[in-house]
Write a protein that binds this DNA or RNA. Structure first.
Lengths: 340, 340
DNA sequence: AAACCGTCCGAAAAGGCTTTCTGCGACTGT
DNA sequence: ACAGTCGCAGAAAGCCTTTTCGGACGGTTT
């Protein structure tokens, strides 16, 4: 820190002087423009290398109006849903020339507004808004001068561009998988009914059962909370009232874990007697349960990547619009294997 | 998207024209400089408001050399350690005028170098490097023109500024807590011995035991892996070989969870017969175990906040240096209550 | 020899903002 | 009434880069 610090970033002028050319020529040489003799070009490049010259992105952005930055507005960083989306987005951009401004609004509209102002003043070329629930969220206020893409949590405005996971379809996938395992008496236990995710998955599950001419155990979805405790309790209740249950579709891996605990403690063999499938494919849970847990993966990184791609396209002027729902996938583990 | 898009960001010139003053006066008015009559100032501010003027941070940064941005270089976004640090840092900055560039190097030195170039060319004023393990990491290569602070994973170079959690002390805290619960025959089971975190906590635990004239059960720390499976297995082994064990200090909450499972299945009562303490205070684990798990919290958000503050100070020229180790804290839950 | 052409290079403007310095009118003190 | 102050506004320079346009230069054609 203390030593020969602050070598003051070299400017194009320095490079030009060292190479003995004008700054115009230096610029052209560095940016691969024509109109520069090969020999001159190498001389400039050597000078740039020697000074470890990095063009000032601010000046460049100021001039040509393209900053190569986008804003990533998340509502809860700690939430495990926004992180993968964020990774996917950072991934999709990172390969190119784009840098990402990260902002966490903490679910506070004021703070969100504040961050948007800051991002806009930094001349981001676009915004990705990442939610922590799949419930539609109010769109960003005001007529923003840059395109916006909503990821995971779609915008309430169907005109906006939104990318999310297809939870209805995922509910069907889970049921189909359990049926492929030979199960017919399937219970669906999930979390808080106020979550769109819970409702959507439930709807998909019920539809899939109906298409097979069946009905969920108990004739309905068991809504509760997204916790192991709920999973444990409701599983005990279901075992008691519907002892012939042979499959559990759980709305989250946490719930599934609770269910598994109750099943094991009550002497049921998973997967021989009963198949269980969770949701989220959260490694810390799925790989530590006994047996390991089959789960639905929402491909959130893919959501992030697609969001980034759509934003890119919108920046380029190819404006799409509407909600794009990406498919989920089943990751099978020990808790669900076909019965003969 | 399609409609009256692109209201072309207003510039200072527009504001000045609308207010009927020169751009110089407009600038002064907006930035609260003196030399502007109150009446003129309000006129300018109204004009700015009307045009929803946001000063172009690029131009400003270009001129005065201060961009109000810092880079956040993480090595694994999905890791659960870098996220809280990142939150704390974003928090500490966010309040002010600073925006954060997020980059994930995926643990790849090439990619890291690439990101550093990009950040530098965007003229960040400082860098925070967030690791995913507490093991010291090689410092960023090259003489960077901006200060760097290492968070969670300290730099190998003791001259650099590093902020991390005090794992040795934490090991002692955990043991002290178990002893305060009346325990004397304490086992320490932890993860991979190649992790500095495991070694440090073990060292602190052994020292605390020695200071009380005691020794860990088995005379040593049980290293293994950071998994529930290891916790389950090693707990069974310890119960078998040292049946009078009355306390478990676990190197992670996952391990603790495995230990708790084995204890419950073998009929031991936690916390009456045996106290258990975990590490990381990871809510998804600590609040779902039966009983709920006491754990050591590394205050990672605090690490992030302090890192941000130190970076700030370094940018201001008050260069500190060296590794700063922040204290951990015990969060008590049901798994450890004092025995009479 | 004059006109012309192609190749390279440099001067200069632009982009939006901050800051210094200058200028101008109004006020104060004697 | 006159020099000296003071308060306020504007002109202009500067930050660093890109890009356009014109100039210099050497060689070719009529």
């Amino acid at each position: 820190m203390a030593s020969g610090e602050t070598p003051r970033n070299a400017t194009l002028t320095d490079v030009a002087r060292l190479a003995g050319v004008s700054i115009a020529t230096a610029s052209k040489a560095i940016n691969g423009r024509a109109q520069v003799r090969a020999e001159t070009r190498t001389r400039v490049l050597e000078a740039a290398e020697q000074l470890s010259f990095a063009p000032n992105a601010l000046a460049r952005g100021l001039l040509q109006g393209r900053t190569g930055t986008v804003g990533l507005l998340t509502s809860d960083l700690e939430g495990r849903f926004s992180i993968p989306v964020l990774m996917g987005a950072e991934d999709a951009f990172g390969a190119g020339q784009v840098s990402v401004f990260l902002c966490d609004a903490r679910g506070d509209a004021i703070r969100e507004q504040h961050h948007i102002r800051a991002l806009l003043s930094r001349r981001v070329e676009g915004l990705i808004v990442v939610g922590s629930r799949t419930d539609p969220r109010p769109p960003l206020a005001g007529d923003l001068p840059v395109p916006v893409v909503y990821a995971y949590a779609p915008s309430e405005n169907p005109e906006d561009i939104s990318i999310t996971a297809n939870n209805v379809e995922a509910g069907g996938l889970a049921i189909d998988h359990l049926m492929a395992c030979g199960r017919r008496r399937i219970a669906h236990v999930t979390g808080d009914a106020s979550y769109a995710a819970a409702q959507d998955r439930s709807r998909g599950a019920e539809r899939a059962m109906a298409e097979a001419g069946l009905e969920l155990v108990g004739g309905r979805t068991f809504f509760g909370s997204w916790s192991e405790g709920w999973g444990r309790g409701v599983a005990a209740m279901i075992l008691d009232q519907y002892p012939d249950v042979d499959g559990f579709f759980c709305g989250s891996d946490q719930i599934a874990r609770g269910v598994l605990d109750t099943l094991r403690e009550s002497g049921r063999d998973v997967p021989r007697d009963i198949s269980v499938i969770g949701f989220d494919n959260w490694a810390v849970l799925t790989t530590n349960t006994r047996p390991q847990l089959t789960s639905v993966d929402m491909n959130l990184e893919q959501v992030g990547r697609v969001a980034a791609r759509r934003l890119f396209e919108a920046i380029e002027g190819q404006a799409a619009s509407g909600i794009e729902e990406l498919p989920c996938r089943i990751v099978t583990r020990e808790s669900s294997v076909p019965v003969p």
